[in-house]
Amino acid sequence: MAAGHQADYHIDSAASQASFQVRLLWLEHIGGNFTQVLGEVAPGPSPDSLVVDAVIPVQSVSMPSKRMRQWLLAPAFFDADHHPTIHFVSDPVAQAELDSGGILTGNLTLRGVTAPVHFAVQPAHCEEQSSTPCHLTLHGRVQRSTFGMTGDHLPLSDSVELNLSITLQRENR
């Protein structure tokens, strides 16, 4: 993103998604996608800093089978009836770190538990004065047990790989 700090961006939900993978029985990976990522990127508290505020509706999860999807939405995993969203709020990040790539830290709330997380950010060269969408790619890992997902600990790895493909659109003000 070009220098300057007054731009606000919203996450283009139709063009953004989050995917995950977890190892099953130490042999194969199972994964899925969240087809909706909502939120915004706004100026942070200091010049040239930004704060990411993203929400993922749990019901937007897509899996290879209906049975697996129901398993993930159940109380042992996402508990979608009681915790319908996943929420991430970043610590302020310098725009230069998004340009060159770096680490995005913040807090993730999942199943009512908030814990610190960090994502590796691929370099993204977004022009602040342009109406062209900006694409961010983030990679990270979380531990299921941190968020109370302790069921099926023998067949499933505790470590979950998260990948986010986020498209930002500049707010028209």
Score class of each variant (00 low, 15 high):
Arg69Trp: 05
Arg111Ala: 05
Gly39Arg: 00
Ser60Phe: 00
Ala14Leu: 10
Arg69Glu: 12
Thr167His: 09
Ala124Asn: 04
Arg111Pro: 05
Leu164Pro: 01
Thr114Asp: 00
Met149Gln: 07
Phe78Lys: 03
Met149Ala: 07
Pro92Gln: 09
Val121Phe: 02
His83Thr: 05
Arg144Ala: 06
Met1Phe: 12
Thr146Arg: 12
Gly148His: 09
Cys134Trp: 02
Ile103Met: 14
His5Ala: 04
Ser49Gln: 15
Arg173Trp: 10
Gly101Arg: 13
Ala2Gln: 13
Pro133Lys: 06
His83Ile: 06
Arg111Gly: 02
Pro84Ile: 05
Gly102Met: 07
His29Tyr: 13
Ser145Ala: 14
Met68Leu: 14
Gln6Leu: 03
Leu27Thr: 14
Asp79Cys: 13
Ile166Asn: 02
Ser145Leu: 08
Gly44Ser: 04
Lys66Gln: 14
Gly31Trp: 01
Ala54His: 03
His125Cys: 10
Arg69Thr: 14
Pro123Tyr: 02
Gly31Ile: 10
Asp152Ile: 07
Phe78Thr: 02
Ala80Ile: 04
Glu128Asp: 05
His153Cys: 09
Gly39Asp: 00
Ala14Ser: 14
Asp158Pro: 04
Val142Glu: 00
Cys134Ala: 08
Thr35Phe: 00
Pro43Glu: 08
Thr137Met: 09
Met63Thr: 07
His82Ser: 13
Arg173Phe: 05
Ser131Leu: 15
Ser100Leu: 09
Ile11Cys: 05
Pro92His: 04
Ala18Cys: 10
Ala54Pro: 10
Gly148Tyr: 08
Leu72His: 08
